[in-house]
Simulated scan of single mutants.
Amino acid sequence: MNRPRSSKRLLGRRELVDFPAFALGGIEAKVDTGAYTSAIHCTDIHIETDAAQRPVLLVRLLDPEHADADGRPLAFANFVLRDIRSSNGEVQERYVIRAVVQLYGEDFETEFSLSDRSDMKYPVLLGRSLLRQGRFVVDVAKRNLSYKFLAHAAARRART
């Protein structure tokens, strides 16, 4: 997709996102300009060691109780443990991974903290570090602009 360097893409307060490495698409995400780090809902978060005695982070991504979830176990060799300030101001230690999220059909690699978000309405939160990198601006009156753009583009291609 070609666009002028100075243009910013518009996101709504909620967006449908894809995680190609996890084979997950159409996951509903809350766009949160107040959060620095993006977050993704995981359960059963724990460390084990592999055959070479290296630590491996194991999680169940988007546990099956969420409507858009599959609960598949995933393993990450690259991760860090970091202090993350939650929405209520409490600092929690959370594991953080790098993952690719797709918006407007483009890949954006960013950090995601892993936490149990089962008490939250949306399993994914998109924070400022991603929004800055993709040069996005948020219109809180809109929703799912990325997916709508892709659907309109596909319809235009089908007509030609």
Rank of each mutant, 00 (worst) to 15 (best):
I45L: 06
I45M: 04
I45V: 15
H46V: 01
I47P: 05
I47R: 10
E48D: 12
E48Q: 11
T49G: 00
D50K: 02
D50N: 15
A52Y: 07
Q53E: 13
Q53D: 14
R54F: 03
R54V: 00
L57H: 08
V59C: 07
V59N: 01
L61P: 01
L62M: 12
L62E: 04
P64F: 01
E65Q: 15
H66L: 10
A67Y: 08
A67E: 12
A69K: 08
G71F: 09
A75F: 04
F76R: 04
N78A: 15
N78R: 14
N78L: 13
F79S: 05
R82I: 03
I84C: 08
S87Y: 07
N88I: 11
E90G: 01
V91D: 05
V91E: 11
Q92L: 12
Q92F: 09
Q92M: 10
Q92G: 00
R94K: 12
R94N: 10
Y95G: 06
V100A: 11
V100T: 14
V101H: 04
L103D: 02
E106I: 07
E106C: 13
F108W: 15
E109I: 05
E109A: 12
E111K: 10
F112I: 09
L114I: 05
R117H: 06
S118Y: 02
S118P: 01
M120R: 07
M120D: 03
M120A: 12
Y122A: 07
Y122I: 01
P123T: 06
V124N: 01
V124S: 02
L126R: 07
S129D: 13
L131V: 06
L131D: 04
Q133G: 03
